[in-house]
Nucleic acid binder design. Structure first.
Lengths: 200, 200
DNA sequence: GTTTTGATGTGAAATTATTCACAGAAGAAA
DNA sequence: TTTCTTCTGTGAATAATTTCACATCAAAAC
């Protein structure tokens, strides 16, 4: 497997390549470095982990690089995901532009508040949390996005794992315990904000 | 300065210590490791960068460790922050529980849509984006949180920097260009989701 | 009082990640 | 054609980070 940091950078690179689209046929490591906020060394080193060749004085073939990256990062097919917790953050994610269309299918939302479920207007099906297990299994959802309050995050994570989810993106500040074969990535706003302060 | 990774972990550690509060007087590296999702080695190594001593067979004195961390991470005073972009994500952040009360003062919100500003119900003052520069300077805001669409993120960042902000937390997927003395931390949901997929 | 146990603290080793340096390739220019 | 220039590719050097191992300590148990 790709080194973790390389993979993380490549996920960002993938987004950048998509935004380049067909606007240019080639892109150099130097140009990519600017768009990525790294150095051209890093770009080339990262790409060297792929089985791909750039062209002298031209750079990399955008569509070829995109396709190779997609394969390396397993984006070759769309993944079904769900969002658990439809508070402000959860609903923000529900219609987050960037999630749409490309690589991910947000196929369900869950909340424990029945009123909230009824009030919500969205094109995505929403369910009560008690249906989590059932719906995840039925729809073959592979990724769970956790946007519930800290108190219920672990419970949700456990249910998601039991229902067959393979990866979890958590916005909760609590450390979730999941089996080691489950991919877990946490984004904690408060920690991030603290980090900014600490680096000032 | 603390190594970057250490600082990042410590920001999380700080939150955990706060949640322990006065529930227990001491906490061991092993216990912290579980709560952090790392190893006790790492915890001890990180703490060893501080000028603090644990107690044999007891662990670290919670309140002492908290205070020392707060100093090392510069949390000794609250920081004024603002949120630019009051779409779903921005408003979610506006009343994000965890930001409240502790270490941060979200003192302003900005949006370029006048109607939205008028409709919003919040205890935090909201302004039109054209007042960004003025308000940031006047209130002495040091941290900017960017939650605007990709297209305007760079412009907002530039304005924030010009207005005297020292740190930026960005939720935009575009790479922002800021002077190197400005602290920049980016959280990109789409990249994160992609990363989860890539690690499955 | 002595032994056992369960902690810390830290130098050293191992691992991982980044940066560098430069050979090689080929488009562009002369 | 020949030279100049600008790009890649990668092994090597460096740097950063994590992991380990174990000396040391003091509370707890006996």
């Amino acid at each position: 497997m790709l080194p973790a940091n390389t993979a993380e950078r490549m996920c960002k690179l993938y987004g950048i390549l998509q935004s380049i689209g067909t606007n240019s046929e080639y892109v150099s490591s130097k140009e990519l470095a600017v768009m990525m906020g790294t150095t051209d060394h890093t770009i080339r080193k990262d790409i060297s982990a792929l089985n791909i060749m750039g062209f002298t004085r031209k750079g990399y073939h955008v569509s070829e690089l995109t396709a190779t990256l997609a394969e390396a990062l397993k984006f070759s097919r769309p993944y079904k995901a769900c969002i658990v917790g439809l508070g402000r953050l959860g609903t923000a994610l529900l219609d987050y532009e960037a999630f749409k269309g490309d690589g991910f299918d947000i196929v369900a939302g869950f909340d424990s508040n029945t009123n909230k479920i009824e009030r919500l207007r969205t094109t995505i099906a929403v369910y009560h949390s008690s249906d989590l297990d059932h719906v995840v299994k039925n729809k073959g959802i592979e990724i769970g996005i956790i946007a519930v309050p800290a108190g219920s995050a672990q419970e949700v994570a456990t249910t998601l794992v039991k229902s067959g989810v393979k990866g979890i993106l958590s916005f909760s500040s609590v450390q979730l315990k999941v089996p080691k074969e489950i991919v877990l990535y946490s984004m904690d706003f408060t920690s991030a904000l603290r980090f900014v302060v600490s680096q000032i």
